[in-house]
Design a protein around this nucleic acid. Sequence first.
DNA 1: AAACCGGGGAA
DNA 2: TTCCCAGGTTT
Length: 299
Amino acid sequence: MQDFSASVRGLLRWHTRHGRSDLPWRRRRTAYRTLVSEFMAQQTQVGRVVQKFNAFMARYPTVGALAAGPRAEVLRAWRGLGYNARAIRLHAAATMVMTLHRGRIPRDARALRALPGVGPYTAAAIRAFAYDLDDLPVDVNIGRVLHRAFFGLEHPPKASLAKLAALGLQHAGGGYRIASALMDLGAALCTARKPLCGRCPLRRGCAAAPVDALELDALRAARKRPAAIPFKETARHARGRIVDRLRALAPRERISLLDLHYELRDELAQRSLEQMRVLVDALQRDGLVLLQGEDVSLP
DNA sequence: AAACCGGGGAA
DNA sequence: TTCCCAGGTTT
């Protein structure tokens, strides 16, 4: 794409009509709300985050309230979102904001990156969305849009995320609006499977348009994929089931490893008690469970 | 660079 | 069933 800046005008026009302006963290935009929404949305589809977000904000309205909340309760509030380590990191980040930054979520990229769970994407997202700085958070959507526009179909990728961010920013200017617009475009039109190039404001000059869905499928199928073992048999699934059982405990209540193993026998795919203990040990190292003697609880 | 970290919804 | 998703951390 040679003339991205000319297309940006059309992109913004499209965004005014079709953007997701109803998202709760866009309706009322604060740094804290941005922080929480970004943690929740890491590898999780936005539509499923919305309800969880509202409940979470009602319970933890400020970064101070979140920092003050017991970790086990934050883990409970995280139920249904998956990637439980994110809840631990969010809580730790809130604590760090209170102790190191007087309760103010930093604008500085380095300070943001120093928070647990904040990488290049989330730091840029907070800077762009919360502070309207000229930074581009390249998520899977924006990465796909820019890659297609400048390089063509994304399989195999021809540019790094950092390079795509630089290309997008070179012509963009204005953090919040351009990032939201590119993101929404990736979610609504420039989708992974069936792009709707006919409606796309960037189609003129796009290196990929019009995308042939069959060609896209063929390219994806050509990718090597790891051997498919049933998800129910993965350690990931078992870990999730263990943490979820512990969520059902009352505060400070514990359950013995023996009872836990018995109750979860159908969810653990024939794992022995000793194999389950290995999983619990790993969960403890990750800060997701607390093992005291033979009794387990949330940390 | 590759592996690991969950779960739900859509195709 | 498989694919996909507002990524980050560890090895």
